[in-house]
Design a protein around this nucleic acid. Structure first.
Lengths: 246, 246
DNA sequence: CACAATCAACCTATCATACAAGTTATTTCC
DNA sequence: GGAAATAACTTGTATGATAGGTTGATTGTG
């Protein structure tokens, strides 16, 4: 009779841990190299052949290891030149989330809630830390949104740009990345929500919500910014329900 | 004289977009297949050979595409059996963040701030939505922390488990993933912070902060939970400064 | 000497083939 | 009918070859 707390995460049927392949080892060796040599963004890695020799495996193995790291945007590969350490962006996270959405492991509602958590902080920080140029830029972005309430694609891009711009003004490089990832993962579901707002008035309402956020940030009022953001997200949530997500 | 708004993101030297390789195409074809066939977690993919035939490329190309997707945990590969669609977990995000930390694209302070943003919401939601079993579990986890203030490794694992458990109680599957990712990315820097707290008293202080959070959640008091969390993060921030990050 | 064209060396992208080893479905034997 | 042997398939790795991109050195020229 084994005592054990009911685990929240239902102990998976526990496939025995997949045996480490040579590619796995190579991946570790390569990341260790990057870390060990303190390589920074843009630094070049040794060639595939070199690693193959060092690790005593075929180039095939190194190739797959490189590709793995390239997929995770840890390195960047291009024909002819040596791989180099890659800059940090949200695309991996975005892809991961997109896949989770498509396979119904999470739903849009939950994604919006995560955005709410993150952006509640970014707007507040932005209101405090934004530069004047950033304030102007936010207002300009909102102005542009007015012009494309009927162009779904452009609207979406402006929307993403707006929220990322706020995150940038928060002066924490992690936030633009997270916001970009969470937002762009919604690219596939957002159109359905937007289509719920048929009349112009209803659409302008959304733009006005953005306007209020931009204004509050420009005013340097974190409280007002949070409130405006909350209103924006409530609108979105309302749209989600109308579109049949819940 | 070209007019243009000063871009916040310093327009990179703009390498021309890397030409699409066959592997890139294969990756897209495979994800399209998953999406198109509405494959769900655990579903099997066609064999590498099949894809190679369909796309008219060598198995090498498909292999690297598979490995890419496997690195992003979109599929899972194991010798002998066909690849299957993979479940969503935070390990990709965690790896991405770890790499960003190591290459000094972000710093621990910023990571903590992102956690603060996310967890401020998870504790509040947990206080509202937690089941009784989850409340008991949280209190039990804290109790275990008392016993290992001198065992850095166990402490770290308990700490992560605690915060993830809260995120699970928030009933949004995205949150455990995000929290796990953000938390475990700190595995490398946390020890340095912890070592700043030499005396037992100072360490118990940290445990007590956790205790307060768990109690507030058990009491179903979101306000108190947020406050307790804020206190916990202030303590951590203080530790970061002592350890020389800022 | 500066500068541009040329070339050699190196590197990645892809292919074809081969074989070992792990999994799964089938068949065979008791 | 059930268990063991086996066939068919699949992934993991190796080898060797070639095409095409990149880079830096060389060379020729104004």
């Amino acid at each position: 009779m084994h005592e054990r707390q009911a685990p929240i995460t239902p102990a998976q049927p526990a496939d025995p841990p997949p045996p480490q392949t040579r590619v796995d080892n190579a991946v570790r060796a390569i990341t260790d190299h990057i870390h060990g040599q303190s390589l920074k963004v843009g630094d070049k890695l040794p060639s595939e052949a070199r690693f193959a020799e060092w690790l005593g495996v075929s180039r095939t193995v190194i190739r797959e290891a490189f590709k793995s790291l390239s997929a995770m945007r840890i390195i960047e590969m291009r024909a002819g030149r040596r791989a180099q350490v890659c800059g940090f962006d949200g695309s991996v996270i975005a892809l991961s989330l997109t896949h989770a959405l498509r396979t119904e492991q999470i739903n849009p509602q939950q994604l919006w809630d995560a955005r709410r958590a993150v952006e509640t902080r970014t707007v507040a920080l932005a209101a405090i830390r934004r530069s004047d140029a950033e304030a102007r830029r936010l207002l300009a972005l909102v102005a542009q949104m007015h012009d494309c309430v009927d162009d779904l694609a452009r609207m979406t891009e402006h929307d993403i740009a707006f929220h990322v711009a706020i995150a940038e003004a928060s002066r924490n490089p992690l936030f633009p990345v997270l916001v970009a990832a969470l937002t762009s993962a919604m690219r596939e579901t957002n159109p359905m929500v937007w289509r719920q707002r048929r009349d112009d008035e209803s659409r302008q309402e959304v733009v006005h919500a953005h306007e209020a956020i931009a204004q509050a940030i420009a005013d340097g009022d974190p409280e007002a910014a949070s409130n405006a953001l909350a209103r924006h997200f409530d609108l979105a949530s309302q749209g989600l329900v109308m579109a049949g997500f819940n």
